[in-house]
Amino acid sequence: MLQTIPPERFYPYLTWQDIDQMADREQVVIIQPVGAIEQHGPHLPLAVDTALGMAIIGRALEQLSPGVPAYCLPPLCYGKSNEHWGFPGTITLSASTLMAVLTDVAESIYRAGFRKLVLLNSHGGQPQVLEIVARDIHQRQSDFWVFPHFVWQVPHQVGRLLSPRERQEGIHAGDAETSLMLAILPDQVHMDRAVTEYPPEQKQEGLLSLEGALPFSWTTRDISQSGVVGDATAATAEKGQQILADVAAGWVTVLEEIYRFEPPRRWDD
Rank of each mutant, 00 (worst) to 15 (best):
L102D: 05
T103L: 04
V105A: 06
A106N: 07
E107D: 14
E107S: 04
I109C: 07
A112T: 07
F114A: 02
K116W: 08
L120Q: 13
G124H: 09
G125P: 09
Q126P: 08
Q126N: 12
Q126G: 09
Q128R: 14
L130A: 11
E131M: 11
I132L: 13
R135I: 00
R135H: 06
H138W: 08
R140L: 13
D143I: 14
W145P: 00
F147R: 12
F150K: 07
W152P: 00
W152F: 12
W152K: 03
V154N: 10
H156N: 15
L161Y: 15
L162G: 03
L162I: 06
L162R: 05
S163P: 01
R165M: 09
E166G: 08
E169R: 11
I171T: 01
A173I: 03
A173P: 03
G174D: 07
G174V: 01
A176Q: 00
A176F: 03
E177T: 03
L182G: 07
A183I: 04
L185Q: 14
P186I: 02
P186Y: 06
V189M: 01
H190C: 00
A194V: 06
V195F: 11
T196N: 05
E197V: 10
E197S: 06
Y198G: 10
P199S: 09
E201Y: 02
Q204H: 12
Q204P: 00
E205I: 08
G206W: 06
L207G: 00
S209M: 09
L210N: 06
E211Q: 15
E211F: 13
G212T: 12
A213L: 14
A213D: 10
S217H: 11
S217R: 12
W218R: 11
W218C: 07
T220H: 12
T220I: 13
D222T: 05
I223A: 04
Q225Y: 05
S226L: 07
S226C: 12
G230V: 02
G230M: 09
G230A: 10
D231E: 05
D231H: 02
A232N: 03
T233D: 03
A234D: 07
A234P: 00
A234I: 02
T236L: 05
A237P: 05
E238S: 12
G240I: 01
Q241E: 15
Q241V: 01
Q242H: 10
L244K: 03
L244Q: 05
L244G: 02
A245W: 01
D246C: 10
